[in-house]
Simulated scan of single mutants.
Amino acid sequence: MSTESGDVTDLRERVTDFLSRNFPQIQMHGGTAVIESLDAESGEVTLRLAGACSGCGISPMTVQAIKSRMAAEIPEIETVHADADGDTAADTPF
């Protein structure tokens, strides 16, 4: 395995761990947070909230919390795009 793919794998695991530790309510309420894409070189991650998150009134607040807290905890992440049920307003870099 190349170092570059190892870096991406490590970063993906840290993003997944971050979501599990900081946002357990997503899963507890029947929702999911999926990493759709991750670019370690640019520090860009795209997430999709689905399941019970679709149509949930607090999804926009959850998205904003993910964006601000992920950057603080994972310095390699520069930009977070997140979408909950096609909510394009949530799909902006923090």
Rank of each mutant, 00 (worst) to 15 (best):
T3Y: 08
T3F: 06
T3I: 06
E4L: 14
G6Y: 09
V8F: 07
D10S: 13
D10R: 13
D10P: 02
R12N: 13
E13W: 03
R14F: 05
T16H: 02
D17Y: 12
D17H: 11
F18V: 05
L19I: 11
L19C: 05
S20P: 05
F23S: 05
I26M: 10
M28Y: 11
H29Y: 12
G30R: 11
T32I: 07
A33T: 07
A33S: 15
V34C: 01
I35A: 00
L38N: 12
A40H: 14
A40G: 15
E41P: 03
S42G: 01
G43N: 07
G43M: 00
V45R: 00
T46F: 01
T46N: 07
R48M: 08
L49R: 07
A50L: 04
A50E: 14
G51E: 10
A52S: 15
A52R: 15
C53W: 06
G57W: 08
G57K: 08
I58M: 07
S59H: 06
P60D: 07
P60S: 09
T62Y: 02
V63E: 08
M70P: 01
A71L: 09
A71K: 07
A72K: 14
A72S: 10
E73D: 12
P75R: 02
P75M: 04
E78N: 13
V80A: 01
V80P: 03
H81V: 04
H81F: 15
H81R: 13
A82S: 15
D83K: 02
D83E: 13
D83W: 05
D83N: 14
D83Q: 06
A84L: 00
G86Q: 09
D87E: 10
T88R: 14
T92M: 03
T92A: 06
P93Q: 01
P93W: 03
P93I: 01
P93A: 14
F94W: 04
F94A: 08
F94L: 05
